[in-house]
Amino acid sequence: MNQRWEIWVGLLGTVMLVWAHYTGLFVSPPEAMMGDVGRILYAHVPTAWVGLLTYLVAFIAAIGALATGRAAWDAMVEATVEVGLLLNVLLLIQGSLWAKPTWGVYWTWDPRLTTCAIMVVAFGVVLALRRQIDAPMRRLTISSVATIIAFVNVPIVYLSVKWWKTLHQPYSSPETVDSAMVTPLRVAAFGMLFLATAFVVRRWRIGLVALQRDFEAPDLPEASAPLKVED
């Protein structure tokens, strides 16, 4: 039962997200400029916040993995990069569907959008590398270094709306949105955070079982010729 606490956290997050999305869709007023399209805020902004936070945990886990060489940190890298990538892909889809009615195009090479797309590719490479490498220590080292390199872009994504002239609006926070929108936005953010936490912990547990098996198995020499049975 102790090992299943994340299921309850996930359920709490789901309930909060359902309430916040319902309120955002049917109770909150339309946004002053964007009208009903502005309701995308309650899905898009929490996905962005929690996605970036998940990548931050991946970065910390990668440092932990390199410093200790332990499977637990390596499994955390795998779990956080996978969940971060899920949120990152959802973020790009949500963003393009929001861009069409407000900017007139699904995609433009705006700094925020471009850095977000780079983030998908960079963390996608981390997962692809992990699937290509069988030797556990080598996989830990290479994927941790790749995660740290990929993370360099994350603060750039966050600061891109400040550093460059961009179509994307500046940071959204409870201070920058109308009070009628604050509560559903906050609840949606915490709901997404709890749900993502549940995903990461569950994915970490699943990955850890497999990685511990890999780490405990003796390193076998590469077979240079097919094995033959002596008569």
Binding site: P30, M33, G35, V37, I40, L90, I93, L97, K100, P101
Partner: peptide, 17 residues
Amino acid sequence: GMIQGGWEFVWLVYGIT
């Protein structure tokens, strides 16, 4: 100045999410 309509995009976003 307020954008009118666009609910199809809102439903798509929530559905895909």
